[in-house]
C-alpha cells in the first residue's frame, strides 16, 4: 500500500470535492429516510448518470446533463407521489437500461460510463469543486428553512392542511434540492458511492443519535469520516473508489450493529 499519492496536489481537488459532498449527502439522506423515501436517492443517482452520459455524447457538460435528468426525476417523484417506490423503481430501470445501452454502443460513453458506475472520483475537476461549494451554500440554509415543514409533514401530516396551508410546494423544493445534490455527487464520485453516502450515514446516525439535531451532525460526520477512509484505501491499494466506499460504509453498519446490540 502506497500512500505517497495522498499528498500529491493532483488528488487534493477531488478529495476536497468529495469531502464536501460526503458531508452534504447524509443530510439529504436524513430527510429522505424520515419520509421513507431513501430509495428515491438511487433513482436520482441512476437518472443523473444516464443524463450525464447522454450529455457527453451530445458534447454538452456532463454536470448539466446529470442535473437536468435529476430535475426530471425530482419532478416525476413529486407528481407521482402516490406511486411511491414504484415510480423510483421504474426510473431506476429506465435510467440503467438507457445508460448501459449507451455505454455499449457509443465509444465516447464507455470510459465515462465506467467512471460513473465505478466511482472514479479522480476525474473530478474544478467545476465539480465550485459546484459542491455552491451546493453547500444553497443546501444548508434551504434545509434549515425546510426542516420544520419536513418533520411536521411526517409527524403531523394534518398540521399544515388543517390550517389551510399546502405543504406540497416545500416538499417539492426538497425534492429538487435532493435531486440536484445527488446529481452533482453522481457525476463527481459515482452512482453507488453517492447512494451509499445518502443511505448509510443516516442509518447509523438514526441508531445512535439522541436528538434530530444530533442525528444530522452525526450523519454528516460519519459520511465525511467514511468517505475519507475510503479515499485513502482506494488510493493506497489502487482500487476504484465507488466499491471501496460502499463496502467500507456497509462494514460500518455491521460494526455499529454489533456495538448497538451490546449497548
Amino acid at each position: 500500500m502506497s500512500l505517497d499519492l495522498l499528498f500529491d496536489p493532483l488528488f487534493r481537488l477531488p478529495f476536497i470535492t468529495g469531502l464536501l459532498l460526503a458531508g452534504l449527502l447524509p443530510l439529504i439522506g436524513m430527510y429522505l429516510r424520515l419520509r421513507g423515501e431513501w430509495l428515491a436517492a438511487l433513482a436520482f443517482a441512476q437518472m443523473a448518470s444516464a443524463g450525464a452520459l447522454v450529455a457527453m455524447v451530445m458534447d454538452v457538460p456532463m454536470l448539466l446533463g446529470g442535473a437536468l435528468a435529476a430535475l426530471v426525476a425530482a419532478l416525476v417523484k413529486g407528481l407521482m407521489a402516490r406511486a411511491g417506490a414504484h415510480a423510483y423503481a421504474l426510473m431506476m430501470l429506465a435510467a440503467w437500461g438507457a445508460g448501459v445501452l449507451l455505454v455499449a454502443n457509443h465509444p465516447l460513453a464507455e470510459q465515462a460510463g465506467h467512471a460513473l458506475f465505478d466511482g472514479q472520483l479522480y476525474f473530478t475537476g474544478e467545476a465539480h469543486l465550485v459546484a459542491s461549494v455552491v451546493a453547500w451554500g444553497v443546501a444548508a440554509p434551504v434545509l434549515g428553512w425546510l426542516n420544520r415543514s419536513l418533520l411536521l409533514a411526517h409527524v403531523f401530516p394534518e398540521f399544515h392542511r388543517a390550517r389551510g396551508l399546502d405543504p406540497r410546494p416545500r416538499l417539492m423544493v426538497f425534492d429538487v434540492l435532493a435531486g440536484m445534490v445527488i446529481a452533482l455527487a453522481t457525476v463527481s464520485i459515482g452512482v453507488m458511492a453517492a447512494f451509499a453516502l445518502v443511505f448509510v450515514p443516516p442509518l447509523i446516525a438514526s441508531r445512535f443519535a439522541r436528538s434530530w439535531r444530533a442525528g444530522l451532525a452525526l450523519a454528516a460526520l460519519v459520511g465525511m469520516l467514511g468517505y475519507s477512509a475510503a479515499f485513502v484505501l482506494s488510493l493506497g491499494f489502487d482500487q476504484p473508489f465507488g466499491p471501496a466506499c460502499a463496502l467500507l460504509l456497509v462494514g460500518l453498519v455491521v460494526v455499529s450493529s454489533v456495538k448497538s446490540d451490546r449497548l
Binding site: R33, L34, R148, L151, L152, H154, V155, F156, P157, E158, F159, A162, R163, A205, S206, R207, A209, R210, S211, W212, R213, A214, G215
Partner: peptide, 25 residues
C-alpha cells in the same frame, strides 16, 4: 385549526425528542 388525528405515524428509528416534537407545533 389544530387537529390531533387517530393513529400513530411510525417513529421508530427517527431520532426526534419530545422537546423537538413540541417545538414543531
Amino acid at each position: 385549526i389544530s387537529h390531533q388525528a387517530q393513529g400513530f405515524t411510525d417513529l421508530r428509528g427517527i431520532p426526534l425528542t419530545g422537546r423537538e416534537l413540541l417545538a414543531l407545533t
